[in-house]
Each structure stands twice: as structure tokens, then as C-alpha cells.
Design a protein around this nucleic acid. Structure first.
Length: 779
DNA sequence: AGGGCGCGATTTTTT
DNA sequence: ATCGCGCCCT
């Protein structure tokens, strides 16, 4: 901050160090930002976008691609803080959601309906299962998980079925693996998805690439449109994602305003196709466009021992971008090492250490994270935390949207929007049971592939005997009535009609076991979420006003959302998660556990140097999550697969200089007094979504306002017509109480009022979409 | 059509 | 140990 011209600069630029500032203000031409952990990466990215807008770039000409919805949301929020509402016009989102949006617009050009269905991993496996059954293949040999991986990685490397056929190396591999017909499965799979009007996650990328490749006019349109392109976590991109990015910016005469931000040392998703080469070779790829490289090496997160240990560790990797991360926070404490005899002792001592640190440094539960390589390790920590009454929350595991009952209802909803969705149909044609058994289903499947139709289309042509025919016809009428509802009413009306008339609610309601009750609640929770989607009148930060409240719109919203995105951050609990899930997070105190050979590094990585390097990066990520206190732990024996096994300390431990480690026993006088309230999740393997109903995909924030004096009574509440609402008026909002209208902008359906609600304790200023507003004018 | 039993697998995971 | 799946029996 020694720049003399500092006072001439906008406030946001003054919050940056020299390198960061250059990375933000070098707006033209290709830029690579190598961002070490805790180096202010997100700040650079968001300020850069804000800066572009301040410089007069129209927000809609900026495309920012991320990997998670959470990252995209945070980015938009932070941009809005600098440039205000204009932020909502920036195209910021995940690769998948942005491309889905474009593909829906351009759907007709690639022979898809614009309301195409998005298949998740389960749907994909189910399609593959049907194909191998139909082809009469052995399902151990042609294992669906293998096939899914193989196809996914082919797509991620831009290998279409046609190209696959020409690739002798791949065909040979399949032959050697006794799976010579893999390419046929791949072809059939693609054809089926197309026929069903469905795309899987990889297709969203592949079809995007093909759209740009095969339609020069469309390609030009988006090249013109997105004059400025930014990519977050670039080290996690796969070949296909990079190919799309290149397509958009790498062409003769391109202004080539692309900025990629990432850290090769934090590339930990190689197993799902991410290729570290993208970032390593980015510089040479854009040399001709005059690329500038900025390295953010100042770490504002962690103390010196932690940063240096991380540096030493990662120095053992080959192939990396040279950089030296240095701490800005003083030496701090040494890294504690726990050597335990057993996994159970490890658990106990981690819990002990948490109590001790809480005591000595006045930390909150939420300042702690326990990280592990595999999710199976969480159980022991849970037991010990429970024993000490330390509240905790386990991340990972089954998400809300993966639960069977949720997927069942969603399958009905999907079918109502797109009856060609074979996977949805297969899932619910006989659930709840309506006498359409496997025999009939097989016949239907065979007929469909014979006629090259979807099952829905083949349904009326199937003759399965008088009795079954009647049942099938009833089913058709049922779905047709759902289709009608979906087309004519809003998402909630349609969904509750469907939940009721499909018999799903009745079926679930009949089960009075605790699990059955939970399932019923999950489904009603989903319906509540849909209701919130329909009634939602609050325009979230960075959101564009959208007035579509149809079932189709709802499904499009949830298809690319996980409930990890909506993890509520209130509550004081210790975080338990895998190292992978911890990426991007930070905690005052971090425990990295199970540092043993075969576990961390994983036994599956032992025979490949590249895989070991990725494990090392994984540990690098884990270590650099810690701000002040880092504890590493391992056990000499551990139960694995029901057997107690001896284990060796991880090789990675010896790669950290002993001077950073504090190996003295942490046990002085330890208070065993229980801290915190007992508020653990119910079961040992619970997830963070235990009881929380999902929030609407569009809006999120439904914090209940405090009960205050001026609260609307739903019984007497009469919403005023939206047209009547004008700036300066006092209004009563059904949810937020009394408020004052500050301004109204937008036109017709998209009118948005900015209202100040004094009764709320946070986010008092809300942007309310008047079309859906539940507000009554007081004066 | 559904329940029960036995066998095999079991890193990490956004979208 | 634990869970999911597939097969077989009722």
C-alpha cells in the first residue's frame, strides 16, 4: 500500500495489495492469477468484476464461471456490495448452470426441447442398467459404475461415440478389460438420452461445446456477448470445460479478455477428470495474446508454522508452478501432533484437545473442524464428541434430494413436465403399486426400443392383456392429468395435486415407524420448499427478476442445486467433513486426522506417483484450512472393514520439518467439564440436512423474523394490488412485518420494490418482486 | 410381489 | 462393521 496515487483510487482498490491490485486492474488480454491458499483469491475475482463494471463494461458482457453454486452466489453478493444492483446482470454461475441456461435458449438448434430434463448420476446408472439388460450383457462384467465412469470420462475428453470408435487405444483397453461392447453401450446411452429429451451433467458441457462448434453464428453471438470471461478454481477444470472456454476466447481477432484464477497446488479433483495441465499450460496457450501472470503469494489466513509446513510438504511434488507462499500473521503456535495407539484413542484425544483449546483460547465450537480422508472415519469422532457433549455437524453423506421418497415425488413432477423422461417413468410406473409388474415393464421397454420410442410413447401401443391394459390406461390418464396441472397451474398447486393423487402421500403416511414418519416429513418438507418457491417475493442478491413459477421452472431450478449450497451457517457446532469438502473453507483450529499410510495417502494411490502427488495436494489443502491451530493425528492401529489393522504413520508427516511440530503431550490438567449444549444430530451418520426442509432453489433466505409488534395476521391480512405500491408508502408484509418502500424499479411484471423492514435484525433492506408481493398498504 | 438371507465391496464428489 | 444388491423362496 505504498502507492503514491492511492488517494485517487476507488475504495475497493485500496483494500488490495500491489499484486492483487494489478490482477484486478489488468482488465484487457489474458490473465492468469495463481492464487495460493488464503491469498484473497475471491476478493481479486470479485473486485475485478466490480472494477470492470466501474470502468463502464456492461455487466451482461461479463461471464464468470465457478464450480459450485455457493461460490457463484458469494461472488455475486460481494460484487453487489461494490457496484450495487447492476451485479445481478453479470452472468455468474456454475459451468453447468450457465450452459444449461444457454442450451435452453438454443435448444432447437441441437434437437432438444427447451425444457429438457437433467439426469443425475442415479438416472444415468438406471439408463445404463436398462441398456445392458436389453443387450443381454453380464452386469458384473458391464458394471454400471464402470460404464458411467468410462462414458463420463470419454465425454469430459471430448470423445463422442463416433470418435470412440476410431480410438484403437480405448477399444483395446475395453477389449482387455473384457468389455468390448462398451462403445455400443455408449452409443445407445447417448441415443436414449436424446430420445428422452434428457441431458446428464456431462452433456451440459458436451452439448455446449457442440453448439459452439457446429453453429458458427451461435458461436459468434456468444463471443460477442461475453467480452470478459472469468474462471474460478481453474485447476479443477477438465479438458472439455477448457475446450469450451477456449472456443469462446481463443480465436483470431479475439480481444481475449480472459482471466483464470486457481492454484495448481490445490488441484484435488483429478479422479473426476480435472486436469492440472490446464493451469500448468495456460500461460503458453495464451502467449500469443500477451498473457500476464500474477502470483498471489501473501497468505492472510494462517500463521507461519502452518504456512511453512504446507510449503515444505508441497515442495515434494513434481510439476508445479513455482511460488512461495508467505504468512502475514506472525509465527503463531507450532503444529500439534497426536500419536494414538488406536483409532478410538485418536478420537478421544481430538475431543480432549478441542476442550483444551476452547478453554485456553476462548474458541467457539464453530471455530473447529475435524477433517478426514474418508467419510467412514467420522463415526469415531462423533462418538467422542457426543460423549463430551460437544455439538457437531457431519457434512457429506446422503443429501436431501438423494433420498428415495424425494426422488420418487420428483420423478412424478418430472414426468408431468416431460413424459418422455424414461427414467422418471420407470421409477414410478409401479410406485405406489398399481399392478404393473416387471413383466409388463420389460415388455414395454422392449416395445419402446423396437419402435425407437420412449416408453411413454410406446405405452398406448402395448398389448399386455385385458387386465393390465386397463391398469396401463389408468396410469396414462393419471399422468395426463398431472401434465395438465403442470401446464395450467403453478408449481405448488401442481405438486401438491400430484403428491395427493399419485397416492404417494397415502403410501408414505401408512408407515408409522420413525423412519416412515421421517420420510413423510421429508416429502411435505419438499412441498413446503415448492410453496416457498412459488410464493417467494424476495429478490435475492444477484438474482434477476423472474416471474416463472411453473413446475418446469421449479425443476430447472433444483436440477443443478445440492443442499450443501444451502447449509445454514447459524448454530455453534464443530464441523466434521472430508478434506475434499473442506476446500475453500477456513477455521481457527483444524484437525487433520488418520495420517497413516494406506489411508492418507489412500491405498488406491500407492502405485502411482501422480496419485500420490494428488494425495499430497489434498493434505496441502487440509493444512491450509487452519488459521491459528493445526493438529495432525494418526493411530497405530485402526479398525478397517471390521478388522483391526496395524498402520504406519503417513510418509507426509516426515515431509514436514520437525521445527514446526510440537510433539509434547498435550495432556496437562484437562478439564473434563462438558461444554456447550447437547444438540448433536440424531443418528451417528446423520447429515447436515437432518430435519431442515429444503429452501426454495431460487431464493434461499427464509430466516423467520422475530415476533415484533407490527406483525401481519394471516387471517385479516389483505394484500394490496401490486400496481398501487409506490415509493414512500408504509406497507405491511406478511412475512417481514411493517416496512417502508424506498423505491420501485423495473416495469410491468418485473417491478421490484426495495423495502426497509425495521423489525428484522439482519438484511433489513429487501427487494420485493411486486408480482408476488404479499404486502398491504398502511399509509 | 415382497420379504429374507447371504455375499461382496468399501476414496474423495460439484453438477 | 456395514450397507446395498441380487437371488430365491413363499
Amino acid at each position: 500500500m505504498s502507492d503514491l496515487k492511492i488517494h485517487d483510487q476507488p475504495a475497493y482498490l485500496q483494500q488490495l495489495n500491489e499484486v492483487q491490485r494489478q490482477a484486478v486492474t489488468t482488465t484487457e488480454g489474458p490473465v492468469l492469477v495463481v492464487a495460493g491458499p488464503g491469498s484473497g483469491k475471491t476478493r481479486v475475482l470479485t473486485f475485478r468484476i466490480a472494477h470492470l463494471i466501474q470502468q463502464g463494461v456492461p455487466p451482461w458482457e461479463i461471464l464468470a464461471l465457478t464450480f459450485t453454486n455457493k461460490a457463484a452466489r458469494e461472488m455475486k453478493e460481494r460484487i453487489e456490495r461494490v457496484v450495487g444492483e447492476r451485479a445481478s446482470r453479470v452472468w455468474a454461475g456454475t459451468f453447468h448452470s450457465i450452459f444449461a441456461r444457454i442450451l435452453r435458449i438454443e435448444a432447437d438448434k441441437i434437437g432438444y426441447p427447451s425444457d429438457f430434463t437433467i439426469y443425475d448420476t442415479d438416472d444415468t446408472k438406471s439408463v445404463l442398467g436398462a441398456i445392458i439388460t436389453e443387450m443381454g450383457l453380464n452386469k458384473d462384467q458391464y458394471n454400471v459404475n464402470f460404464l458411467r465412469n468410462r462414458i463420463s470420462s470419454a465425454k469430459s475428453n471430448l470423445i463422442t461415440p463416433k470418435l470412440y470408435r476410431t480410438r484403437n487405444d480405448l477399444l483395446d483397453e475395453d477389449h482387455m478389460a473384457q468389455r468390448p461392447r462398451t462403445v455400443e453401450v455408449y452409443e445407445k446411452y447417448m441415443a436414449r438420452c436424446k430420445r428422452s429429451g434428457a441431458m446428464d451433467f456431462d452433456d451440459l458441457l458436451l452439448r455446449m461445446f457442440e453448439l459452439l462448434q457446429n453453429h458458427p453464428d451461435v458461436c459468434d453471438k456468444y463471443r460477442q456477448r461475453f467480452r470478459y470471461l472469468l474462471v474460478d478454481e481453474f485447476q479443477d477444470t477438465n479438458f472439455l470445460q477448457y475446450a469450451i472456454v477456449r472456443k469462446l476466447v481463443h480465436y483470431p481477432g479475439s480481444p481475449c479478455n480472459i482471466c483464470v484464477v486457481g492454484d495448481d497446488a490445490q488441484s484435488i479433483y483429478g479422479f473426476r477428470g480435472a486436469t492440472i495441465r490446464n493451469i500448468l499450460e495456460f500461460e503458453s496457450d495464451f502467449k500469443n495474446f500477451g498473457i500476464k501472470v500474477f502470483k498471489l503469494e501473501a497468505n492472510y489466513r494462517s500463521t507461519e508454522h502452518i504456512v511453512q509446513a504446507a510449503n515444505e510438504l508441497i515442495a515434494h511434488n513434481t510439476r508445479q508452478i513455482p511460488k512461495t507462499i508467505y504468512s502475514q500473521k506472525g509465527p503463531g503456535e507450532r503444529i500439534k501432533l497426536i500419536r494414538a495407539m488406536t483409532d478410538s484413542e485418536e478420537g478421544r484425544r481430538v475431543a480432549d484437545t478441542i476442550l483444551e483449546l476452547k478453554n485456553r483460547h476462548h474458541l467457539r465450537n464453530s471455530d473447529f473442524a475435524i477433517l478426514y480422508r474418508t467419510n467412514a472415519q467420522s463415526r469415531i469422532f462423533e462418538e467422542h464428541l457426543r460423549h463430551y457433549n460437544i455439538p457437531y455437524r457431519v457434512f457429506g453423506g446422503m443429501s436431501f434430494y438423494q433420498r428415495k421418497e424425494i426422488k420418487d415425488l420428483i420423478a412424478y413432477l418430472r414426468l408431468a413436465v416431460n413424459p418422455r423422461d424414461d427414467e422418471a417413468l420407470r421409477r414410478i410406473i409401479n410406485y405406489p403399486r398399481r399392478g404393473i409388474g416387471n413383466t409388463t415393464l420389460d415388455k414395454l421397454g422392449n416395445l419402446a426400443s423396437q419402435l425407437d420410442l420412449t416408453m411413454w410413447e410406446a405405452l398406448p401401443r402395448l398389448d399386455a392383456g385385458t387386465r393390465t391394459n386397463t391398469l396401463l390406461q389408468e396410469f396414462r390418464h393419471l399422468i395426463e392429468s398431472f401434465q395438465q396441472k403442470a401446464a395450467q397451474t403453478d408449481a405448488y398447486t401442481a405438486a401438491s395435486y400430484i403428491a395427493q393423487h399419485s397416492g404417494l402421500l397415502k403410501e408414505l403416511g401408512a408407515d408409522k415407524t420413525p423412519e416412515g414418519l421421517q420420510r413423510f416429513e421429508n416429502v411435505t418438507g419438499l412441498l413446503d420448499g415448492i410453496k416457498a418457491f412459488v410464493e417467494n417475493d424476495v429478490l435475492e442478491t444477484g438474482q434477476e427478476a423472474s416471474t416463472d413459477r411453473s413446475l418446469a421452472a421449479y425443476l430447472q431450478n433444483i436440477a443443478l442445486v445440492t443442499d450443501l449450497d444451502q447449509a445454514d451457517d447459524d448454530g455453534d457446532y464443530v464441523t466434521l467433513m472430508s478434506v475434499h469438502s473442506a476446500k475453500g473453507l477456513e477455521f481457527k483450529s483444524v484437525f487433520v486426522t488418520g495420517l497413516e499410510e494406506q489411508l492418507f495417502p489412500s491405498y488406491l494411490s500407492l502405485d502411482s506417483p501422480e496419485a500420490i502427488d494428488e494425495e499430497r495436494r489434498l493434505l496441502y489443502v487440509a493444512i491450509t484450512r487452519a488459521e491459528q491451530f493445526l493438529t495432525l493425528s494418526f493411530a497405530h492401529s485402526r479398525y478397517r472393514y471390521g478388522q483391526q489393522r496395524m498402520c504406519e504413520p503417513s510418509r507426509f508427516l516426515s515431509e514436514i520439518a520437525p521445527e514446526h511440530l510440537d510433539q509434547t503431550s498435550p495432556h496437562g490438567s484437562l478439564s473434563r467439564a462438558p461444554f456447550g449444549r447437547f444438540e448433536n444430530r440424531m443418528g451417528p451418520r446423520s447429515t447436515q440436512t437432518q430435519s431442515a426442509p429444503p429452501r426454495s432453489g431460487v431464493s434461499g433466505n427464509f430466516k423467520k423474523p422475530r415476533q415484533q409488534t407490527l406483525r401481519a395476521d394471516p387471517a385479516t391480512f389483505k394484500p394490496s394490488p401490486p400496481e398501487a405500491i409506490q415509493p414512500g408508502m408504509k406497507v405491511l408484509h406478511l412475512q417481514f412485518g411493517e416496512g417502508k418502500v424506498l423505491k420501485v424499479d423495473g416495469a410491468r411484471d418485473k417491478r421490484v420494490a426495495t423495502v426497509f423492514f425495521p423489525d428484522l435484525d439482519t438484511d433489513q433492506e429487501k427487494r420485493i418482486m411486486l408480482k408476488f408481493a404479499k404486502m398491504q398498504i398502511i399509509s
